[in-house]
Computed example of a mutant assay.
Amino acid sequence: MNDSEELAPAVASILRSAEARGDPDGGPLSVDARSLPAALSRAEEDGCVPVIAEVKPTSPTTDGTREADPVELAEKMVEGGAAALSVLTEPDHFEGSPENLRRVREAVDVPVLRKDFLVRESQLDTVESDVVLLIARFVDDLAGLIGAAEDRGFQPLVEVHDAAELARAVDAGAEIVGVNNRDLAKLEVDLETFETVAPEVPDDVTLVAESGIGTPDDARRMVRAGADGLLVGSAIMDGDVTENTRRLTRA
Protein backbone atom coordinates (compact mmCIF):
# COMPACT_ATOMS: atom_id res chain seq x y z
CA MET A 1 0.00 0.00 0.00
CA ASN A 2 2.44 2.60 -1.24
CA ASP A 3 1.00 6.05 -0.72
CA SER A 4 4.42 7.68 -0.47
CA GLU A 5 3.16 10.97 -1.83
CA GLU A 6 1.35 11.40 1.50
CA LEU A 7 4.37 10.51 3.63
CA ALA A 8 7.07 12.67 5.14
CA PRO A 9 10.13 12.61 2.84
CA ALA A 10 12.20 10.64 5.36
CA VAL A 11 9.50 7.97 5.67
CA ALA A 12 8.98 7.80 1.90
CA SER A 13 12.71 7.22 1.51
CA ILE A 14 12.60 4.36 4.05
CA LEU A 15 9.69 2.79 2.19
CA ARG A 16 11.49 3.00 -1.17
CA SER A 17 14.52 1.32 0.39
CA ALA A 18 12.33 -1.45 1.79
CA GLU A 19 10.71 -2.07 -1.57
CA ALA A 20 14.10 -2.19 -3.31
CA ARG A 21 15.80 -4.42 -0.76
CA GLY A 22 16.79 -7.83 -2.05
CA ASP A 23 15.19 -11.02 -0.83
CA PRO A 24 17.11 -13.29 1.55
CA ASP A 25 18.55 -16.61 0.44
CA GLY A 26 17.02 -19.84 1.63
CA GLY A 27 13.51 -21.04 2.32
CA PRO A 28 10.90 -20.04 4.90
CA LEU A 29 12.01 -19.83 8.51
CA SER A 30 10.44 -21.81 11.33
CA VAL A 31 10.46 -19.94 14.63
CA ASP A 32 9.76 -21.12 18.18
CA ALA A 33 8.56 -17.74 19.45
CA ARG A 34 8.51 -16.45 22.99
CA SER A 35 5.06 -15.05 23.75
CA LEU A 36 4.89 -11.26 23.80
CA PRO A 37 1.39 -11.07 25.35
CA ALA A 38 2.49 -13.43 28.13
CA ALA A 39 5.62 -11.38 28.82
CA LEU A 40 3.62 -8.16 29.02
CA SER A 41 1.11 -9.80 31.35
CA ARG A 42 3.87 -11.10 33.63
CA ALA A 43 5.36 -7.63 33.95
CA GLU A 44 1.97 -6.21 34.90
CA GLU A 45 1.42 -8.99 37.45
CA ASP A 46 4.80 -8.10 38.96
CA GLY A 47 3.65 -4.51 39.42
CA CYS A 48 5.70 -3.12 36.55
CA VAL A 49 4.72 -1.09 33.50
CA PRO A 50 5.18 -3.50 30.54
CA VAL A 51 7.87 -1.86 28.41
CA ILE A 52 9.22 -3.06 25.07
CA ALA A 53 12.60 -1.32 25.05
CA GLU A 54 14.12 -0.57 21.67
CA VAL A 55 17.75 -1.05 20.69
CA LYS A 56 17.90 1.91 18.33
CA PRO A 57 21.29 3.02 16.95
CA THR A 58 19.77 6.06 15.20
CA SER A 59 16.68 7.22 13.30
CA PRO A 60 15.62 9.99 10.91
CA THR A 61 13.91 11.78 13.82
CA THR A 62 16.88 11.82 16.21
CA ASP A 63 20.39 13.27 16.19
CA GLY A 64 23.55 11.22 16.38
CA THR A 65 24.28 7.52 16.60
CA ARG A 66 24.65 5.28 19.65
CA GLU A 67 27.88 3.34 19.23
CA ALA A 68 27.46 0.89 22.14
CA ASP A 69 27.24 -2.82 21.47
CA PRO A 70 23.60 -3.86 20.87
CA VAL A 71 23.89 -6.88 23.15
CA GLU A 72 25.25 -4.72 25.96
CA LEU A 73 22.38 -2.28 25.50
CA ALA A 74 19.83 -5.10 25.43
CA GLU A 75 21.15 -6.65 28.62
CA LYS A 76 21.00 -3.28 30.37
CA MET A 77 17.39 -2.83 29.25
CA VAL A 78 16.44 -6.23 30.65
CA GLU A 79 18.27 -5.36 33.86
CA GLY A 80 16.09 -2.24 34.04
CA GLY A 81 12.96 -4.35 33.83
CA ALA A 82 12.07 -4.42 30.13
CA ALA A 83 9.44 -7.08 29.48
CA ALA A 84 10.53 -7.40 25.85
CA LEU A 85 12.94 -5.84 23.39
CA SER A 86 12.73 -4.32 19.92
CA VAL A 87 15.73 -4.43 17.60
CA LEU A 88 16.06 -2.39 14.40
CA THR A 89 17.04 -4.37 11.34
CA GLU A 90 16.47 -1.57 8.79
CA PRO A 91 19.98 -0.81 7.49
CA ASP A 92 19.81 2.36 5.43
CA HIS A 93 18.14 4.87 7.75
CA PHE A 94 18.36 3.30 11.23
CA GLU A 95 21.76 1.56 10.94
CA GLY A 96 20.14 -1.67 12.08
CA SER A 97 21.02 -5.18 10.97
CA PRO A 98 19.70 -8.74 11.17
CA GLU A 99 22.95 -9.70 12.87
CA ASN A 100 22.24 -7.29 15.72
CA LEU A 101 18.87 -8.94 16.27
CA ARG A 102 20.34 -12.43 16.07
CA ARG A 103 22.96 -11.63 18.70
CA VAL A 104 20.49 -9.91 21.01
CA ARG A 105 17.95 -12.74 20.85
CA GLU A 106 20.67 -15.26 21.71
CA ALA A 107 21.72 -13.19 24.73
CA VAL A 108 18.35 -12.54 26.40
CA ASP A 109 15.35 -14.62 27.42
CA VAL A 110 12.60 -12.06 26.75
CA PRO A 111 10.64 -11.76 23.49
CA VAL A 112 12.38 -9.78 20.74
CA LEU A 113 10.53 -7.75 18.12
CA ARG A 114 12.03 -7.24 14.68
CA LYS A 115 11.54 -3.54 13.89
CA ASP A 116 11.69 -3.01 10.14
CA PHE A 117 9.59 -2.00 7.14
CA LEU A 118 8.41 -5.31 5.68
CA VAL A 119 6.41 -5.12 2.48
CA ARG A 120 6.44 -8.70 1.11
CA GLU A 121 6.44 -12.24 2.42
CA SER A 122 9.99 -13.18 1.48
CA GLN A 123 11.37 -10.46 3.77
CA LEU A 124 10.07 -12.41 6.75
CA ASP A 125 12.82 -14.97 6.16
CA THR A 126 15.74 -12.63 6.85
CA VAL A 127 16.19 -13.46 10.54
CA GLU A 128 14.44 -15.28 13.38
CA SER A 129 12.64 -13.14 15.96
CA ASP A 130 9.68 -13.64 18.25
CA VAL A 131 7.60 -10.76 16.92
CA VAL A 132 7.62 -8.98 13.55
CA LEU A 133 6.34 -5.47 12.91
CA LEU A 134 3.87 -5.11 10.03
CA ILE A 135 2.85 -1.51 9.29
CA ALA A 136 -0.72 -1.64 8.00
CA ARG A 137 -0.26 1.43 5.83
CA PHE A 138 2.56 -0.18 3.86
CA VAL A 139 1.09 -3.64 3.24
CA ASP A 140 -1.33 -4.39 0.42
CA ASP A 141 -2.33 -7.93 1.43
CA LEU A 142 -2.32 -7.52 5.21
CA ALA A 143 -4.23 -10.72 5.96
CA GLY A 144 -1.85 -12.63 3.68
CA LEU A 145 1.27 -11.26 5.35
CA ILE A 146 -0.14 -11.85 8.84
CA GLY A 147 -0.88 -15.44 7.84
CA ALA A 148 2.56 -15.92 6.32
CA ALA A 149 4.21 -14.62 9.50
CA GLU A 150 2.10 -16.87 11.72
CA ASP A 151 2.81 -19.89 9.50
CA ARG A 152 6.50 -19.38 10.29
CA GLY A 153 5.84 -19.07 14.03
CA PHE A 154 6.21 -15.29 14.28
CA GLN A 155 3.78 -13.15 16.26
CA PRO A 156 2.80 -10.20 14.03
CA LEU A 157 2.48 -6.81 15.71
CA VAL A 158 0.36 -4.78 13.29
CA GLU A 159 0.96 -1.04 13.52
CA VAL A 160 -1.90 1.41 12.90
CA HIS A 161 -2.39 5.14 13.31
CA ASP A 162 -6.14 5.69 13.11
CA ALA A 163 -9.50 3.97 13.41
CA ALA A 164 -9.67 3.02 9.74
CA GLU A 165 -6.30 1.27 9.86
CA LEU A 166 -7.33 -0.43 13.11
CA ALA A 167 -10.48 -1.80 11.50
CA ARG A 168 -8.42 -3.12 8.59
CA ALA A 169 -5.92 -4.75 10.97
CA VAL A 170 -8.63 -6.45 13.03
CA ASP A 171 -10.44 -7.63 9.90
CA ALA A 172 -7.12 -9.09 8.69
CA GLY A 173 -6.79 -11.15 11.88
CA ALA A 174 -4.34 -9.06 13.93
CA GLU A 175 -4.08 -10.26 17.53
CA ILE A 176 -1.41 -7.76 18.57
CA VAL A 177 -1.89 -4.14 17.51
CA GLY A 178 0.40 -1.17 18.01
CA VAL A 179 -0.94 2.37 17.78
CA ASN A 180 1.76 4.74 16.55
CA ASN A 181 1.42 8.19 18.06
CA ARG A 182 3.65 9.53 15.29
CA ASP A 183 1.96 10.80 12.15
CA LEU A 184 4.03 9.41 9.26
CA ALA A 185 2.90 12.26 7.01
CA LYS A 186 4.13 15.06 9.28
CA LEU A 187 6.32 13.18 11.78
CA GLU A 188 4.41 14.94 14.56
CA VAL A 189 3.78 13.02 17.78
CA ASP A 190 0.56 13.28 19.79
CA LEU A 191 -0.30 10.90 22.63
CA GLU A 192 -3.97 11.65 22.05
CA THR A 193 -3.71 9.46 18.97
CA PHE A 194 -3.52 6.38 21.17
CA GLU A 195 -6.24 7.65 23.47
CA THR A 196 -8.54 8.15 20.47
CA VAL A 197 -7.93 4.75 18.86
CA ALA A 198 -7.66 2.57 21.97
CA PRO A 199 -11.40 2.46 22.84
CA GLU A 200 -12.09 0.89 19.43
CA VAL A 201 -9.69 -2.03 19.99
CA PRO A 202 -11.38 -5.39 20.77
CA ASP A 203 -10.79 -6.70 24.29
CA ASP A 204 -9.03 -9.83 23.04
CA VAL A 205 -6.36 -7.87 21.16
CA THR A 206 -3.05 -7.09 22.86
CA LEU A 207 -2.57 -3.35 22.53
CA VAL A 208 0.79 -1.55 22.38
CA ALA A 209 1.34 2.22 22.51
CA GLU A 210 4.20 3.39 20.27
CA SER A 211 6.20 6.64 19.99
CA GLY A 212 6.30 9.77 22.09
CA ILE A 213 6.54 8.04 25.48
CA GLY A 214 9.32 9.88 27.25
CA THR A 215 8.44 10.22 30.93
CA PRO A 216 6.82 8.18 33.71
CA ASP A 217 3.79 10.45 33.36
CA ASP A 218 3.54 9.51 29.68
CA ALA A 219 3.81 5.83 30.58
CA ARG A 220 1.07 6.05 33.19
CA ARG A 221 -1.10 7.99 30.75
CA MET A 222 -0.84 5.31 28.08
CA VAL A 223 -1.57 2.51 30.58
CA ARG A 224 -4.64 4.37 31.82
CA ALA A 225 -5.80 4.67 28.22
CA GLY A 226 -5.64 0.90 27.78
CA ALA A 227 -2.09 0.02 26.72
CA ASP A 228 -0.99 -3.54 27.49
CA GLY A 229 2.57 -2.57 26.57
CA LEU A 230 4.66 0.47 25.64
CA LEU A 231 7.23 0.53 22.84
CA VAL A 232 9.92 3.01 23.85
CA GLY A 233 13.11 3.86 21.98
CA SER A 234 14.71 7.29 22.18
CA ALA A 235 13.74 8.00 25.81
CA ILE A 236 15.62 4.88 26.88
CA MET A 237 18.59 5.14 24.52
CA ASP A 238 19.45 8.73 25.52
CA GLY A 239 21.59 8.40 28.65
CA ASP A 240 21.80 5.62 31.25
CA VAL A 241 19.92 2.80 29.54
CA THR A 242 19.32 0.73 32.67
CA GLU A 243 18.09 3.66 34.73
CA ASN A 244 15.96 5.05 31.91
CA THR A 245 14.28 1.67 31.51
CA ARG A 246 13.76 1.29 35.24
CA ARG A 247 12.28 4.78 35.49
CA LEU A 248 9.54 3.81 33.02
CA THR A 249 8.91 0.25 34.18
CA ARG A 250 8.51 1.50 37.77
CA ALA A 251 6.30 4.46 36.78
Results as ranks from 00 to 15, higher is better:
L145P: 11
L145F: 13
G147K: 03
G147H: 12
G147F: 04
A148D: 04
A149P: 07
A149T: 05
E150A: 09
E150I: 00
E150L: 04
D151A: 15
D151Q: 13
D151K: 12
R152L: 02
R152H: 03
R152I: 06
G153N: 06
F154E: 00
F154G: 01
F154I: 02
F154Q: 00
F154K: 08
Q155M: 08
Q155F: 04
Q155Y: 07
Q155L: 11
L157E: 11
L157R: 05
L157W: 02
V158S: 08
V158M: 10
V158R: 02
V158N: 07
V160P: 08
V160R: 09
H161C: 03
D162F: 00
D162A: 07
D162L: 00
A163C: 13
A164C: 01
A164P: 00
A164G: 08
E165K: 05
L166W: 05
L166V: 07
R168W: 09
R168K: 09
A169R: 01
A169P: 04
A169I: 15
V170R: 14
V170L: 12
V170C: 12
V170P: 12
D171I: 04
G173Y: 13
G173N: 06
A174W: 11
A174T: 06
A174N: 11
E175A: 10
E175G: 15
E175V: 12
I176C: 14
I176Q: 08
I176F: 04
I176V: 15
V177A: 03
G178C: 03
